[in-house]
Design a protein around this nucleic acid. Structure first.
Lengths: 225, 225
DNA sequence: GGAAGCTCTCAGCGGACTCTCAGTGCACAG
DNA sequence: CTGTGCACTGAGAGTCCGCTGAGAGCTTCC
């Protein structure tokens, strides 16, 4: 469980950092708004603890910027009891929870756990072609309910074909998409890997999902062949 | 119906004790947190009434300790209106109900009856993969009914793999999730710790729960290998 | 202050994977 | 029917990746 903590009071930040680490969180600590936005954009956290009073960008601006960038990591805001802002503002701006300073450490942990629990996992992207399925998140390929193990290159090729299923893709496109845009080796690798793939996903099932379009390239049959 | 009552204000404790007894409950009364934990561990109660302000261990610590020990007796917390905690916190921390002092005795009895009727809260998260189990709350790992002792790092790695069981996770993801998002050392640590883990959870049982997906990462077999 | 345990680094090894190459087979056009 | 060119195939070389054992720093606990 990864937490981004944005807090400029060093003593508080240090205490909480240590405590959360002991509680089993992996904590990243930044001390101002700009770094907060940068960190949250670059990495994926399960939850963000965001102080309001911060150097450079205050907490509200940070929250606004993140949401504007499409980053929807749950945010728990820390508000000072005597501050000019209150809880209502925090909720209006898209915070998922708030806590008034001073706060109990136990409560903080409990709230973070609740926030993380609440935020369900993203729905998985599963590509299908007939009875052939490829689960992008799990990097799993199945046909007929049985798992098929592929090497990285084979997997990359199959994912590319599945993403373009129904379309005829040229070997050059495949090389650019699966190998490297700057690849300058023998285009025959594609043929070789198509063969490897066929051996694993077609031959054992007496199907031909991968069709050869002579002179053009290959095409993955959307019905699975 | 057996009630454990944890309350250090003697007058209040005595009054409630008498009242609950009259209402048909069997009441055990303790006056501080340590005795509360001890009593709740030793005996089985149908419900626990827990004050927050307590000598030695406060109510929240008591609750945390009990849940950590796998004791899931329903808990009703007593909160003072002016305290630093409020009802929301009580729920977040795992209490099943709360009451703000001063409270009506009739309401207390009604709530207790409701709690007992409702039964205990759901069991904690126990992750399983075949006969391999990991109890998150207790930080315990078992295989085949026997406990396996792990170092903190090993435990962290296993919990991560169990939370993503069935998914292939890359070494980078593992480093970010188990080590630190900013970790910049040798990714070989992951391999080394996978080995340590295998030595403890797989080799002695002639299994292979942790699978290597070459070029991609690792995957914990949901069936335990 | 020493022992034990934990974390992490390092370097060598073996095998899996990638890619090349040369020869074969097959489709299509003339 | 025949030739051309594209795709297919099997073998093999080189590279990269993960595994492993040893050990050096650190911390913790006597």
């Amino acid at each position: 469980m990864r937490v981004l903590m944005v807090e400029d009071e060093l003593r508080l930040a240090d205490t909480v950092h240590r405590g959360l680490t002991d509680a089993g969180f992996v904590v990243e600590l930044v001390h101002d708004g700009e770094n907060a936005v940068w960190a949250a954009t670059e990495h994926n956290y399960d939850v963000i603890v965001l102080d309001i009073m911060l150097p450079k960008l205050n907490g509200y601006r940070v929250l606004e910027l993140l949401r504007a960038r499409g980053i929807w990591t749950p945010v728990l805001m820390l508000t000072a009891k005597d501050g000019e802002y209150d809880q209502t503002d925090a909720f209006d701006l898209g915070a998922d929870d708030y806590l008034t300073k001073p706060f109990s450490f136990l409560v903080l942990v409990a709230r973070l756990r609740a926030l993380i629990r609440r935020g369900g996992p993203e729905r998985p992207v599963v590509l299908t072609a007939g009875d052939l399925t490829l689960d992008v998140a799990r990097r799993r390929v199945e046909r007929d309910g049985r798992e098929i193990t592929l090497t990285p290159r084979e997997y990359g090729l199959l994912e590319f074909l599945m993403r373009h299923r129904g379309d005829t893709v040229s070997k050059t496109e495949i090389l650019a998409g699966v190998w490297d845009p700057a690849f300058d080796g023998d285009p025959n690798v594609v043929e070789v890997y198509v063969r490897y793939l066929r051996k694993k996903i077609d031959t054992p099932y007496a199907r031909h999902a991968i069709e050869t379009i002579r002179g053009m390239g290959y095409r993955l049959n959307p019905e699975g062949g």
